[in-house]
């Protein structure tokens, strides 16, 4: 399954890079946002394990929590399905934490980017990047 996320990462990067190269500055900002998403996909892909439960661990067996610490303090998963023998397994918490902060930060960067585009549009009275050629003095 993780392979699918890896491929999705690639596709997202392709879409993002293409948007990045547009002359419409608003589309460029969208390109950045797509790249951020692509990176989140990548983080998700390299998670260590494919869990079937949220990363919540009950301190002890309360008879309900699918994942708990047994008396010896070991991580224990309840058997979910007697027929298939499927055991509860938490999803990788570390990549989730990384993605969570990444999402918030990418929002901040996105806002900054949009602010810049706003300024550019005021200064050049266009948002066509091909018409902003003041770089060449």
């Amino acid at each position: 399954m993780n392979d699918l996320f890896a491929i999705a990462t690639g596709i997202m990067f392709a879409l993002g890079v293409f948007q990045l190269l547009r002359r419409d500055m608003i589309k460029v900002s969208m390109g950045f946002y797509i790249l951020f998403t692509g990176i989140n996909f990548f983080l998700l892909a390299v998670g260590v394990f494919d869990g079937n439960q949220p990363a919540y661990v009950a301190p002890k067996d309360d008879g309900q929590a699918p994942v708990y610490l047994n008396d010896a303090g070991e991580l224990t998963g309840r058997i979910l399905d007697e027929d298939t023998g499927e055991v509860a397994q938490p999803s990788d918490p570390l990549v989730q934490a990384l993605i969570l902060t990444a999402i918030v930060i990418s929002f901040g960067s996105y806002a900054l980017l949009l602010g810049m585009i706003n300024i550019l549009s005021r200064r050049f009275s266009t948002i066509d990047s091909d018409k902003m050629d003041n770089l060449k003095a």
């Binding site: 392979d3 996320f5 890896a6 491929i7 990462t9 690639g10 596709i11 997202m12 990067f13 392709a14 879409l15 993002g16 890079v17 293409f18 190269l21 692509g38 996909f41 990548f42 892909a45 390299v46």
Partner: peptide
Amino acid sequence: AVIIGMSVGIFALAA
């Protein structure tokens, strides 16, 4: 875009 996307995808797959 396609080349970069493919390369990143392959990189991710390898990882």
